[in-house]
């Protein structure tokens, strides 16, 4: 994007989404506080705050991690993905409240600096059962914080897509740390095995979802492994109007779009956040990314002005009723004559 930045680009749908998020948090917190004030009235308010915000951020993190794979399985969930960054930042803030309260409560007003105390109170680093689990939470919070502060598009553009994506893939490291933090912390504290079972189920649920998507995508990639100059796409009838078919071409995915009796091929990876262009649609003559609505002209892979994003384009040919794509990409934004099919 090369227009002026805004803090948040609000629209009605986004506001509705955020209202839902606020409602989610309110329902959760009210329920948690209510249940504890009635059934666990002996617990101090600090404990309730620490546990409420800890559990809330744990739940939100699971929600966030479900969205990605869910949209790949069923594109109808794409609307949940959009604005996911607000979910992420909110989750970090909830975790920050949990962390800050825990630090003040357990480490504050003591004989050493509270941050040092997180590392230096419990020294059983060699033990599994006695491990200082708060250290794990500290590092998880650090990673989530780094992700939260770089969630604006400004960072995506100025860090570069690869760096940004690598930074945000660290959510899986943070997730691992959070799971260990919870298992070695509160779950070990409570004698019931039920909580351990629940957290294990959640962890395997998330892992299975990701694995399922990974397997599906590998299958797509295997459809045409040939390193030949031309790769078979298939019959043009396979592609629906204004939609695309994705094929793997020498390690890259290419999206072949059909529109107004013409075919154009572009690289499948959106330059915004790496969204799958081939799962998008042509709207007002532009390929529109399903993730955040970034647009490209099918004929040259360029975003319409004033935007500046560009993707690679590919040559197409028709032989015996079958469409073939050239394995050699043109540089980003190169105009290619669309393939006319009668």
């Amino acid at each position: 994007m090369s227009v002026s930045y805004r803090s948040i680009l609000w629209n009605k749908q986004k506001i509705r989404y955020d209202k839902g998020l606020v409602l989610f948090i309110l329902i959760f917190l009210v329920a948690f506080f209510g249940i504890h004030l009635v059934f666990h009235s002996n617990v101090t308010i600090e404990t309730i705050i620490i546990r409420a915000f800890g559990l809330l951020s744990l739940v939100l993190l699971h929600v966030i991690l479900t969205i990605g794979p869910l949209t790949r399985i069923n594109p109808r969930f794409l609307i949940v993905l959009y604005n996911r960054r607000h979910l992420g930042v909110t989750m970090f803030l909830m975790a920050l409240i949990h962390g800050a309260f825990s630090m003040m409560n357990f480490h504050g007003l003591g004989d050493i600096n509270p941050i040092r105390s997180i590392f230096l109170s419990n020294l059983q680093y060699q033990s599994v059962a006695h491990f200082p689990f708060q250290v794990l939470g500290f590092f998880a919070l650090l990673i989530l914080g780094l992700m939260a502060v770089t969630s604006h598009d400004f960072w995506l553009k100025n860090l570069g897509y690869k760096t940004w994506k690598a930074l945000h893939m660290m959510v899986y490291i943070a997730y691992g740390l959070v799971i260990l933090h919870v298992v070695m912390g509160v779950i070990q504290n409570e004698t019931s095995i039920v909580l351990f079972a629940v957290i294990l189920t959640a962890f395997f649920g998330i892992a299975m979802l990701h694995l399922l998507v990974a397997v599906r995508e590998t299958t797509t990639d295997q459809q045409s492994k040939l390193n030949a100059e031309w790769v078979l796409v298939g019959a043009p009838e396979e592609i629906k109007e204004s939609r695309a078919k994705i094929v793997a071409v020498s390690g890259e995915r290419v999206a072949i779009f059909l529109y107004q009796g013409m075919l154009s091929a572009v690289n499948n990876v959106c330059r915004h956040q790496g969204g799958p262009l081939g799962e998008g649609k042509i709207i007002d003559g532009c390929i529109t990314c399903p993730w955040h609505g970034y647009q490209y002209l099918p004929g040259n892979g360029q975003s319409p002005p004033p935007f500046t994003e560009k993707v690679e384009t590919y040559d197409l040919k028709l032989e015996n009723g079958q469409v073939w794509v050239n394995a050699q990409p043109h540089p980003e934004g190169t105009a290619v004559e669309p393939l006319k099919i009668s």
Binding site: M1, S2, S4, Y5, R6, S7, H152, F154, N158
Partner: peptide
């Protein structure tokens, strides 16, 4: 200097980055 898109951005955008 890094990104011309920042020039006309509002003050709260600077707070966000």
């Amino acid at each position: 200097r890094l990104d011309p898109g920042v020039k006309d951005a509002p003050w709260h955008f600077r707070l966000i980055i």
